[in-house]
């Protein structure tokens, strides 16, 4: 579904991603794990079309999408959910969700389906998104992305700002979504255990380079991963 070759991202003169190669097959969930500042966010932003200065090749389902702006990628079904969520705080939850499928006409069935996935949103429907709790805002952000029936969902640190129990809930929702909709997911995460539980495969990113790759099970058993990211010995 997604093929990334030689992706380089720089902020000013400082390069933070040094030639990243990465692949996500259709229906697969892939985790991009690494510590804070490893370049995960920069890589995802570049794939999502938010870093116009990046270089490298990006293909979506075989189609060249390098250099396309973010809104064009969203319309093609590559939908990015940033860690800061970027909701429209003064607009209602419903409006936020409906915007997820812009410029398509609001689809009632889809809206009902998304609300069914996150029942909390039904109660909050007419409330401004800015008044919601962190967990609820994360639900709106993911729900907004799902409104489009994404071909590829890019999730950046969905655990940000959430209590551990909520992290579990959010990841449980992702697991359900994978089953229900055969969703293809690339998730960047610092909370490595949760991400490895969801993912089929993972890449370990350090200082802007892939250090290690393998299936989620392999990496869970890898002594280096256990030491650095799982807090185990």
């Amino acid at each position: 579904m997604l093929t990334v070759e030689g992706l380089r991202v720089a902020y000013g003169d400082i390069e933070v991603v040094h030639g990243l190669d990465l692949e996500v097959a259709a229906g697969e969930a892939v985790a991009l794990i690494g510590s804070n500042g490893a370049g995960k966010t920069a890589a995802l932003r570049a794939v999502a079309g938010l870093e116009p200065g990046c270089s490298g090749r990006v293909r979506l389902a075989g189609e060249e999408i390098t250099g396309l702006p973010a809104h064009a990628l969203a319309r093609r079904g590559l939908v990015y959910v940033p860690a800061e969520r970027r909701l429209f705080g003064a607009m209602t939850v419903r409006e936020n969700l409906v915007l997820g499928a812009h410029p398509e006409r609001p689809d009632r069935d889809r809206l009902a389906r998304v609300v069914e996935l996150f029942p909390r949103l039904a109660e909050r429907r007419s409330q401004p998104a800015g008044t919601l709790s962190g967990g609820e805002q994360q639900m709106v952000a993911v729900g907004r992305a799902l409104m489009r029936r994404p071909r590829l969902l890019l999730l950046d640190e969905p655990s940000t700002g959430l209590a551990p129990v909520l992290v579990e809930q959010v990841y449980a929702a992702f697991a359900r979504l994978r089953e229900a909709e055969a969703l293809t997911v690339l998730v960047a995460e610092q909370q490595v255990p949760a991400a490895l539980q969801l993912a089929d495969r993972a890449y370990v990113l350090e200082d802007g380079r892939i250090q290690l790759t393998g299936t989620a099970d392999e990496l869970t058993d890898d002594p280096r991963v256990r030491r650095a990211y799982l807090g185990l010995t």
């Binding site: 969203a74 940033p82 909701l87 429209f88 915007l99 812009h102 410029p103 907004r144 489009r148």
Partner: peptide
């Protein structure tokens, strides 16, 4: 309200 958020929604 949020230029980047809007872009991510296909605006």
């Amino acid at each position: 309200q949020d230029e980047e958020g809007a872009q991510l929604c296909g605006v």
